[in-house]
Design a protein around this nucleic acid. Structure first.
Length: 473
RNA sequence: GGCGCUAUCGUCUAAGGGUUAGGACGGAGCCCUCUCAAGGCUCAAAUACGGGUUCGAAUCCCGUUAGCGCUACCA
């Protein structure tokens, strides 16, 4: 059974790129009936924050992609140290007593890459033990094979055959001088211990993978499959960052803007992945069934936002598609929650509520549209736009609306057909175009000049509210 | 600097030796129409550049350029 993991470090809010990584992991896990593991990689105590941790859970819960197991790396430090100790004992790791941050600028223009600190690889075990026992601080480094170097290879599920010489890999740190594990050590230790079968992560880890292979080998553990994902970038090709690009990179921004979690997931999937059959609007189940690493492409994907419009037009379009086509019964709870949060009343029983949603959702693209553009369908307290005001101010319009109210009240029925008949008859008798009354009616009934068919609006609102509003005109 | 990855319409992508290089979003237009959407139809829009291999290259190879990643006691 496949075991996948998503391992965010709680050093910032949940990033849209991280969310996509989670989605791909989840999709593969579900597709192959595997386990989805959420592991909080909180080994960098200086940068971890509680707010960030909460943002991750909040964001992931909103996506509605549940995980099966949860771990905190900080509670597993003993395992990391255990492996570090074993590697030291076996001689594949060594202590480096060089003080930190000696020459930061020398590296910048240096001719070759830094590989290790001189003298430290050759320290005898006795001297190393003695200095450590004396309390001298050290970092534990991996002794990367050098004489002769080795060619490391693996087959990435997305990027294909990869190889790199150990001559180009520095003796990376395993343990910091305060004894805490670095990312490489902690991550590999846990991946081994949790029996992770597929490591699916950002392409920024592609070259790190060689270090990880070294650790896996040294630990005597079988290699998992690796699949690296192209990165999400800003329109100028730079990587997405909160500082430069603001709220667009945070998943809570999409939630607050009225995206359906499901549509957002759909959008994320389309960034760097394709089912290759031209399908785009897909349900969760369709995504699960269609997902495979072969469909992932290898170049970075641009999230197409702008200063004045923070959302990728395709994301908005996808949201509209889902909003309009998903079973109305599934949509209703989201609409209800959105209205409740905005303090808008819902004067309907469940069935009527569904009908109203079904009528108005055909022109909406965001959940928030229900509280803004759809306000008049729920509340008596709705604004009249200037355009709508104009329709009402047409000569004779108000008088006609009042007359219409009387006729509708007297009419034996109140259906789309009957309302249309009554209205058109009134227009004919008064010698005006039906459009005049229709547009004025929509204006007073909804506060807007745009929306569903006016006759549908009449019936949707119900006779009582219609009469009251027409007479108020 | 070293090592690695990538390059198809503005954006997301399909085509992986033979297609008028396909679809979608966005844009323009037409139809429909009580408005606005939706829907239908149409248009504009791409293989980074230079070499090679081949009867034939977006596709394979080399180079250039550009972007990105790694090169930390961050992850």
């Amino acid at each position: 059974m496949p075991r996948l993991r998503f391992a965010p470090s709680p050093t910032g809010f949940l990033h849209i790129g991280s969310a996509r990584t989670y989605v791909f992991n989840w999709l593969y896990a579900r597709r192959h009936r595997g386990a989805m593991i959420l592991r909080i990689d909180d080994t960098d105590v200086d940068r971890n924050t509680q707010a960030s941790l909460e943002s991750i859970f909040e964001g992931l819960r909103w996506l509605e992609l549940e995980w099966d197991e949860l771990y905190h790396q900080s509670q597993r430090l003993h395992l990391h140290r255990q492996l570090a100790q074993a590697l030291l004992e076996r001689g594949v790791a060594y202590r480096d007593f060089t003080p930190p941050s000696a020459q930061p600028e020398e590296k910048a223009h240096g001719a070759g890459p830094w590989l290790f600190n001189p003298g430290m690889r050759e320290l005898s075990r006795e001297e190393s033990d003695r200095r450590a026992a004396a309390g001298e601080p050290f970092v534990l480094r991996f002794r990367v094979p050098r004489d002769p170097p080795r060619i490391l290879r693996f087959r990435d599920l997305v990027y294909g055959e990869q190889e790199k010489s150990t001559a180009d890999i520095e003796d990376f740190a395993l343990l910091r001088s305060d004894g805490t594990p670095t990312y490489h050590l902690a991550s590999c230790t846990d991946d081994i211990d949790m029996k992770i079968t597929h490591i699916v992560r950002g392409q920024d880890h592609l070259t790190n993978t060689f270090k990880h292979i070294l650790i896996f080998e040294a630990a005597g553990a079988p290699l998992p499959e690796f699949a690296h994902l192209p990165l999400l970038v800003a329109p100028d090709g730079s990587k997405l960052s909160k500082r430069r690009h603001g709220a667009v990179v945070s998943v809570t921004t999409y939630r607050d803007a009225g995206f359906l979690p499901h549509a957002f997931v759909n959008f994320l999937c389309l960034l760097g992945w394709s089912p290759k059959d031209n399908r785009e609007v897909m349900t969760r189940q369709e995504l699960i069934e269609a997902f495979s690493f072969e469909g992932i492409n290898r170049s970075n994907a641009v999230v197409n936002f702008r200063e004045d419009d923070p959302f990728d037009p395709k994301a908005v379009w996808l949201n509209a598609q889902h909003l309009r086509t998903m079973p109305v019964r599934e949509l209703a709870p989201y609409v209800r929650r959105t209205l409740e949060q905005a303090g808008v009343p819902i004067p309907y029983d469940e069935e009527r509520f569904l009908t109203v949603i079904d009528v108005i959702r055909t022109r909406y693209s965001m959940l928030t549209d229900f509280v803004t553009r759809g306000r008049a369908y729920f509340s008596e307290d709705y604004p009249i736009t200037p355009e709508a005001q104009q329709k009402l101010d047409e000569p004779g319009a108000r008088q006609l609306l009042h007359e219409l109210a009387d006729r509708l009240e007297a009419s034996p029925e109140f259906t789309e057909a009957s309302v249309e008949r009554d209205l058109r008859q009134l227009a004919a008798e008064r010698g005006v175009k039906a459009g005049l009354i229709i547009n004025a009616a929509r204006a007073i009934l909804t506060g807007q000049t745009v929306g569903p068919s006016a006759f549908t609006v009449f019936v949707t609102l119900g006779r009582e509210r219609v009469l009251e509003r027409l007479r108020r005109a």
